[in-house]
Computed example of a mutant assay.
Amino acid sequence: MITLVRRATALCALGAALAACGTAEAPQAPRPAPAAPSASPSGQAPSRPPTLAPGPAGLTPVFEHGPRADGRTVALTFDADMTADQGPRAAAGERFDNPRLIATLRKLKVPATVFMTGRWAEEYPDEARSIGRDPRFEIANHSYSHYAYTDDCYGLPTVSRERMRTDVERAYAAFEKAGVRNAMPYFRFPGGCYDKAALRELTGTGVTAVQWDVVSGDAFATDAEAVARQVLDGVRPGSVVVMHCTRSAAPVTEEVVRKVVPELRRQGYRFVKVSELIGAANGRA
Rank of each mutant, 00 (worst) to 15 (best):
W212Q: 07
L18P: 04
Y147H: 05
K177H: 12
R119T: 14
H65A: 11
R136G: 15
A228Y: 10
A219F: 03
G238P: 00
A53P: 02
L156D: 00
L199P: 08
Y144N: 05
C12N: 12
G179F: 04
F63V: 10
V210P: 00
Y144E: 10
E94N: 00
G87C: 02
N282A: 13
S216N: 05
D167N: 10
R188W: 07
A228L: 01
E254D: 12
A221T: 04
A280H: 07
I102D: 13
D97F: 04
V227P: 06
A249V: 14
A33Q: 13
R265T: 06
G55D: 06
P111H: 09
Q211M: 09
G22M: 08
T77C: 05
E25Y: 04
T205W: 09
A281T: 10
T77M: 01
S47N: 06
L11R: 01
D85T: 11
S40N: 15
D223W: 10
T253W: 12
R188S: 11
T9M: 11
F189D: 12
P34R: 15
P111F: 05
Q44M: 15
A17E: 05
I131T: 06
T117W: 04
V240L: 14
G179M: 04
A173S: 14
A173N: 02
P61R: 13
G206N: 04
K273E: 12
V114W: 13
D97W: 02
Y269D: 08
R7I: 01
Q44V: 06
D134V: 03
D126P: 00
A140E: 09
G58Q: 06
Y194L: 09
K196A: 02
N141F: 02
F271D: 02
A35S: 11
R170L: 12
A250W: 03
E122V: 14
R7Y: 14
P135W: 03
A8R: 00
R229I: 11
P61V: 03
P49S: 04
V210I: 14
R270H: 11
I278Q: 09
F96T: 05
R284S: 15
A13T: 07
R170W: 02
W120T: 03
F187L: 11
P56V: 15
C153M: 00
P125N: 08
E94T: 07
A250P: 02
V242Q: 10
P49W: 11
P237D: 08
V272R: 08
R7A: 02
P185V: 09
R266P: 08
A148V: 00
R31I: 06
I2F: 08
V240A: 03
W120K: 06
G234R: 14
A224G: 15
Y154K: 00
H244G: 00
P46A: 07
A178W: 15
D218M: 15
A103H: 13
Q230H: 11
A35E: 10
G87I: 13
M184Q: 14
R236I: 02
T208W: 03
R181S: 07
E276D: 03
P190M: 00
L52C: 07
